[in-house]
């Protein structure tokens, strides 16, 4: 297990380096002079020269990359051009908001997706199955932004049940926080719930057909035990892996959802940074997301390993 993890980690390093190069070249590819963007209104040649000197902009590209990379590795991802705040700090203050959103979305996705998948597999071909599939297909097909806007119109504007915006930190006002987070979490969670449902269903269908399920029935176990203990235990292995991979998906899905519900999270940070040409922030966020994605993959691999006794040996 340890050797396996070490190997997987070693394989991740080149991937991470590649991401860092792509992230770094973003600013080279984007139109406009970064020095101009940093200088803002003060565009005297002396100031620009000073800025170029300060940010190593006169150095050859590989040297610039090296400066940037060593900085990143020591936790310094530069400064936001707009707010002058360190990028690391910006990410750290916004991240918990998005993590909360993603966690809530995941809980919703699991709470809907897995039971729906089980029911539609066990009741295959019945109205339950058809219903669950129709809902799942809608969940996959309906874009998040449309569902978000519809929910705001219905739940917030028409019925006045939940606030459409006005995020509050859970530490300040938990009830307000949950009220503002539940709708975006639902919007974000439904798409994933649909994917989870489809995968749970197909994994359950194949494990319900397995010989060991017949053995379990031959022991006289109740249908509930057969389904939940024998079939589901096996079906969950691929589903859990998929769920972990979807966590990475949630981080990117949060971008739109946070924008719609004006939640000051990670997604909003990156959108604002793009509009403001705040390169350092964009770089930081993309690099961070990429790393998180790779870590999620690693976690998925490890979970698969832990859940599957055949691999553990």
């Amino acid at each position: 297990m340890l050797a396996y993890m070490a190997r997987r980690l070693a394989v991740s390093i080149p991937t991470l380096l590649l991401i860092s190069m792509m992230v770094f070249s973003l600013q080279l590819l984007l139109p406009g002079d970064p020095a101009l963007a940093i200088a803002g209104e003060e565009r005297s040649p002396e100031v620009l020269a000073a800025i170029r000197e300060m940010y190593h902009l006169n150095d050859p590209v590989p040297v610039q990359y090296w400066h940037w990379l060593t900085g990143v590795l020591s936790g310094d991802m530069g400064q936001s051009i707009r707010s002058r705040m360190p990028v690391t700090e910006l990410i750290m203050t916004k991240l918990p908001v998005t993590l909360q959103l993603a966690t809530m979305a995941m809980i919703i996705a699991l709470a809907i997706g897995i039971p729906a998948g089980i029911v539609s597999a066990v009741r295959k071909g019945t109205a339950w199955d058809v219903g669950a599939n129709v809902v799942a297909l809608s969940g996959i097909s309906i874009p998040n932004f449309w569902l978000g806007i519809m929910l705001i119109m219905l739940v917030s504007v028409q019925w006045g049940l939940l606030p459409a915006s006005g995020y509050a930190s859970p530490l300040e006002d938990l009830s307000r926080n949950l009220q503002t987070m539940i709708m975006p979490a639902f919007v974000l969670g439904t798409g994933i719930a649909a994917i989870m449902m489809r995968h749970t269903r197909s994994a359950m269908l194949s494990s319900l057909r397995a010989d060991y399920v017949r053995t379990a029935r031959a022991k006289g176990l109740s249908e509930r035990v057969v389904v939940l203990r024998h079939a589901l235990r096996n079906a969950l292995i691929p589903v859990v892996t998929l769920g972990t991979l979807q966590l990475g998906e949630l981080l990117s899905g949060a971008v739109l959802t946070e924008q719609i519900f004006t939640i000051p999270g990670f997604g909003k940070l990156v959108v604002d940074a793009v509009f403001n040409r705040d390169y350092a922030v964009v770089q930081g966020v993309v690099l961070f997301t990429g790393t998180a994605f790779i870590l999620m993959n690693l976690l998925a691999d490890m979970l698969y390993f832990l859940l599957n006794p055949r691999l553990r040996a």
């Binding site: 010989d211 060991y212 017949r214 053995t215 031959a218 249908e223 096996n234």
Partner: peptide, 28 residues
Amino acid sequence: SRKELNERRGDRMAMIFQEPMTSLNPVL
């Protein structure tokens, strides 16, 4: 009924299958 049958399966009657490789649950 299914319940009455379940009380007998694995108790008064039991079965061994052809495929020992797949008849046991791999995760238990």
